[in-house]
Computed example of a mutant assay.
Amino acid sequence: MKIAVVAANGKAGSKIVDEAIARGHEVTAIVRGENRSHAPEAIITDILDITAEQISGFDALIDAFGAYAEDQLPLHDASAQHLADLSAATGVHFYVVGGAGSLFVDPEHTTQLLDTDAFPAEFRPLADAQRKQLANLRGRTDATWTFVSPAIEFLADGEKTGSYEIAGEELSFNEDGKSQVSYADFASAIVHLAEDGGHVRERVSVRW
């Protein structure tokens, strides 16, 4: 496959690049500045300036963009809508590295994790921005997208176990009662999803 990874220099993006290369795919990094990932090819541009011509011919476009400063939080939704526009124009399958805050905590899907008292207040602005990102993607029937939420504990330096579970929209726990996944195993999961090509216009989650 030909896979492009947006924000390939980041912790999640670089892991995704490495996983895709290890599986034998042709990988291109899309970064704002110098390509510091292991991708052999790079497109140097701002995320909002990516063009349909640049991604034409790719099988998957994986968006690992993340902003944490308050004034940059709206970029989650703005960039997702821009990339959805490109998906609609080119047919590329667009995957978003989302957050856990928008996972539902009830089978009726009326309450999301970030709306519970247990959710840390300091992470709520980011989670809310990612919830809006997902909500607006749900209205895009013209684009081919998949939103992928990690577990509650998203472990940047966690080990690669080679084991993970792709679950649905509800918050779930492993047999030890934990919701965890490492960046490395999440990268394995998202590349697997890209290879499979399913879950079109759906949100899924990944945990150990």
Results as ranks from 00 to 15, higher is better:
residue 5 V to K: 00
residue 6 V to D: 00
residue 8 A to K: 02
residue 11 K to G: 00
residue 11 K to S: 05
residue 13 G to Y: 00
residue 15 K to A: 12
residue 17 V to N: 02
residue 20 A to R: 01
residue 22 A to H: 10
residue 25 H to P: 03
residue 27 V to H: 05
residue 30 I to P: 05
residue 30 I to N: 09
residue 32 R to A: 10
residue 33 G to W: 04
residue 34 E to F: 02
residue 40 P to V: 10
residue 44 I to F: 03
residue 47 I to S: 15
residue 48 L to D: 15
residue 52 A to S: 11
residue 52 A to Y: 03
residue 53 E to Q: 13
residue 60 A to F: 01
residue 63 D to L: 09
residue 75 L to W: 06
residue 75 L to G: 00
residue 77 D to K: 13
residue 78 A to P: 01
residue 78 A to Y: 08
residue 79 S to Y: 08
residue 83 L to C: 05
residue 84 A to T: 02
residue 85 D to Q: 08
residue 87 S to P: 01
residue 87 S to G: 00
residue 88 A to S: 13
residue 90 T to D: 01
residue 98 G to Y: 02
residue 99 G to L: 02
residue 100 A to M: 13
residue 102 S to I: 11
residue 102 S to N: 15
residue 103 L to C: 12
residue 112 Q to E: 13
residue 117 D to G: 04
residue 117 D to P: 07
residue 120 P to G: 11
residue 123 F to S: 12
residue 123 F to N: 08
residue 125 P to Q: 06
residue 125 P to L: 10
residue 125 P to F: 06
residue 128 D to I: 09
residue 134 L to Y: 12
residue 136 N to A: 00
residue 141 T to G: 14
residue 144 T to H: 12
residue 145 W to C: 07
residue 148 V to T: 10
residue 152 I to W: 11
residue 154 F to E: 03
residue 158 G to E: 10
residue 160 K to C: 10
residue 160 K to N: 09
residue 165 E to V: 15
residue 167 A to F: 07
residue 167 A to H: 08
residue 170 E to A: 12
residue 172 S to M: 11
residue 178 K to C: 09
residue 179 S to F: 09
residue 180 Q to E: 15
residue 180 Q to M: 13
residue 183 Y to V: 03
residue 184 A to E: 05
residue 185 D to Y: 06
residue 186 F to I: 10
residue 187 A to L: 04
residue 195 E to K: 03
residue 199 H to M: 06
residue 200 V to Y: 06
residue 206 V to H: 02
residue 207 R to I: 11
residue 207 R to N: 13
residue 208 W to A: 06
